[in-house]
Amino acid sequence: MATAQTTAQTTPPRSDGIEPTVYHPREGGQGSALDIRNFNLWYGETQALHDTTIDVQKGLVTALIGPSGCGKSTLLRSLNRMNDLVDGLRVSGEVKVDGFDIYGPGVDVIALRKRMGMVFQKPNPFAMSIYDNVTYPLRVDGITKKSILDDTVERALRAAALWDEARDRLYTSALGMSGGQQQRLCIARAVASDPEVLLMDEPCSALDPIATAKIENLIADLRGQYSIVIVTHSMSQAARVSDNTAFMYLGRIIEYGATDTVFTTPKVARTNDYVTGRFG
């Protein structure tokens, strides 16, 4: 935030103090999965997101990049209202899924989260068997029918490229798996309830290169089935897996566009500085 204040003092703000987002995303052809309009977010008195506006294309992979503390994770966690757990949180603007505002009155947060699978930085399987982990989203819905649960486990584990490794140990503890397997299990758990959007918060940051490669392949496989929003610190990863990239800086979206354009010929000088490693 110190940088933000310095910037504000040294360079006079443009018109209303907000840089307009440069906007050139690739179209997925199926419309938008998430429509974020003029979204602001405050943690107490600190504004973490400034007037963010992007629309996430259905079926494509959207990467959020930017230096630490720029609001990538905050934006991601706003999409399934995980930030609700934070005290003193305020928002304005809207985030629309299928035309209804998820911050509107009377929204069922639990139903919303079921439409948004989420994968976290560190693998966080529950202290249960692999089977119970994958079926957890269904069981909290009260589904107990064995055939449905069995089918879901196989579908989700296959989707997460974990079926072959896990099929013989479905009833052993998930905590006995390797870190990479655990993260894929978390992805399986996230897709078990058949969500529309997959939110991934730096899913590979705790993994070794081989496990990372597996997850990246998996993301490529899942592309098309789900709209994926992925936060990443690794620009090469963003370049490899995503269709569109949003570059964020100080809580603002500086540039949102097709990944190859953002990484080769960015339209904003600051994006260029970041992707070429001049700061960040």
């Binding site: 639990i110 989260r113 079921k114 976290f120 560190k122 989203p137 909290v140 758990r189 309830s193």
Partner: peptide, 22 residues
Amino acid sequence: PRSMREGSLACGASKWQTIRYI
């Protein structure tokens, strides 16, 4: 750990279900 609770909440579990099962 917070990550456990978040994992459960992100699965669409309610707060009580998270407390009860996780």
